[in-house]
Design a protein around this nucleic acid. Sequence first.
DNA 1: CATGAATGAGAGTTCATTCAT
DNA 2: GATGAATGAACTCTCATTCAT
Lengths: 194, 194, 194, 194
Amino acid sequence: MGEKSVQKRKFILETARKVFVEKGFKKVTMKDIVEACEISRGGLYLYFESTSQIFMEVMKLESEEADDVFSDSITEDATASDILVLFLQEQKKELLRKKNTLTQAIYEFYFENQLPKKDNVLKKQFDSAVKIIEKLLETGVENGEFYCEDCAGTARNIIFVLEGLKISAQTIGITAETVDREILYILKSLSADE
Amino acid sequence: MGEKSVQKRKFILETARKVFVEKGFKKVTMKDIVEACEISRGGLYLYFESTSQIFMEVMKLESEEADDVFSDSITEDATASDILVLFLQEQKKELLRKKNTLTQAIYEFYFENQLPKKDNVLKKQFDSAVKIIEKLLETGVENGEFYCEDCAGTARNIIFVLEGLKISAQTIGITAETVDREILYILKSLSADE
Amino acid sequence: MGEKSVQKRKFILETARKVFVEKGFKKVTMKDIVEACEISRGGLYLYFESTSQIFMEVMKLESEEADDVFSDSITEDATASDILVLFLQEQKKELLRKKNTLTQAIYEFYFENQLPKKDNVLKKQFDSAVKIIEKLLETGVENGEFYCEDCAGTARNIIFVLEGLKISAQTIGITAETVDREILYILKSLSADE
Amino acid sequence: MGEKSVQKRKFILETARKVFVEKGFKKVTMKDIVEACEISRGGLYLYFESTSQIFMEVMKLESEEADDVFSDSITEDATASDILVLFLQEQKKELLRKKNTLTQAIYEFYFENQLPKKDNVLKKQFDSAVKIIEKLLETGVENGEFYCEDCAGTARNIIFVLEGLKISAQTIGITAETVDREILYILKSLSADE
DNA sequence: CATGAATGAGAGTTCATTCAT
DNA sequence: GATGAATGAACTCTCATTCAT
């Protein structure tokens, strides 16, 4: 079975993404996607066989693009501090964005599918985020920008805070001020005690 | 509603709780609850009209009982530090407990139902947890047990970390070591810099 | 799960029987039965979960009734010869009856479902028919009505001929004359050679 | 239809035959045949328009080849008895062969399609088989090999027994012993009473 | 001729919800 | 109050059949 039309495949994934953004994961049916794509019932099954499969492919696309975005944001002569602030601002935007976010759908998906590490995109993202922050902190410490005893621990802590903010945004709702406060708290703790 | 029905009402809520613990929120149907309760289909509708309503009442019960548990754990002559450690250990147990937890169901419920503050049990819990930690920190600071410049900020930070751990436990899975590391990190930051 | 309404259950089986008579087994869908019964789609599933299950129950009913019919037909003072002729006439009627016959459906059903001996109604019917004919022949031989060296063998042979007629009736079509000729052939062979 | 297509046509029929052997008739879809042939969906429709049409053509091929096989088996100087035994042995093999048999598919096909005599291949085969056996018996009687009063009747009887065995093989299952017993019974009746 | 993507009808199945008893 | 049979809407999935390339 060939890839059918790669164009259409991508079109479906992009359209399905919008549906997932709007409805989360569990609520979405094949019918929803069919209707959003304005294709035939059977047509969708030519490309995908379940919402789970579609969602996983949407996430794959998503993470590929995310990588691009991230590497772009690191410009040549930015300091560690600059980059960290940039990163946190990026996270803030993401956190406060009501629409265009897969966050809720991703959570729902992983509630149902406790995938093994290898396939767990979320885990990969988590680990890679920790790694990135850790390096940033180490660079910052070398340059005298930051102070931290246990960079790995601090990096993990930062990511957990961001995760906490993320889930709170989805459930109890948070304001820009709340995010700002937490970002400041993080930055302060990195510089406070020199 | 007569006396008898109060009994049955409670029985249904307790049974439904088990179902939500097992399946989360979205997946649960009225049929599931009917079957778990071994009552008639129509019977359930005499008491409740939707899984949402049932779930909200389950959460109400839950939070009432939770309050009890919490106030119990504060014994007379414990230090702030003792109580904080106790609280964090309690959270750890909760985090690592796979079963008997409504966590996932609660998240799912709030994904669908962005309730206004008044009815948002999650928000109330969040706020009250922050308040409690804040007071604890303040007491600790007064007693010279802790050091912290901005107790409110630190309290919020702690809660966000716990939230981050909680959602991670549900999605990517976390180990006891991961929780311990974060708890240690929190405690260290409270004492590190006197 | 109770038996729901036994009345309705039986009504469904009787109605489904007509559908199977008309369409055979494979062609029949749950929808066909729903429509024939004039009940709701979901209603049928309250009683049965597949056409196979329904068909097996129809056959069970059928064979129970068949037993009754058969025992009725053996009157007190009939000779073996009388009974055999009666039996063969009964078979003839059955063979030539276009409608009201489950024959085709039964064949189709067993094509798909090679059931183990225990559950194979067809096999049971076959064996019991052989037994009955055999006894009849033995009685006939004792009374000097028939001549046969190997009653068991002859009985089996008779049943296989009837099976051959039955399947031929369903596929190539047979006439009353054809059946009569075979019946005569059978009877002649029983008396020919004294 | 050009030369090339005759090849392909035949290829499709041969491949479809395998599918019918495996699945019977009703269960087979155009898709099944398309996939077995590894041709395009539309391609199949250029040659055939339904599974029924394909099946009828498969049967036509089959019967042509069957004739060949049969005439081969009659060697010059074999006695009628030899040929009859050979024929019955051939039938036995056929009966017990689970795979490579269209039998079930043929039955299913004729259940649905009560074709008029002209097109009813099964009927033709039946009649021609009776004719052949009849001639064989007559030859045998002339040569003193067999005894039978009514060769036509006996021939028909033999064929009906074989039909009975055939359908039984497909539905309730039969053993080699069962077939042997019936063959012996037939042969005995031809010689018993001289 | 040949392809295979696309369509849409239709079958199976599950449940929320109602209602006569 | 309580029951549970009954309904019908909604979803999943599969194919026969068509048609642009």
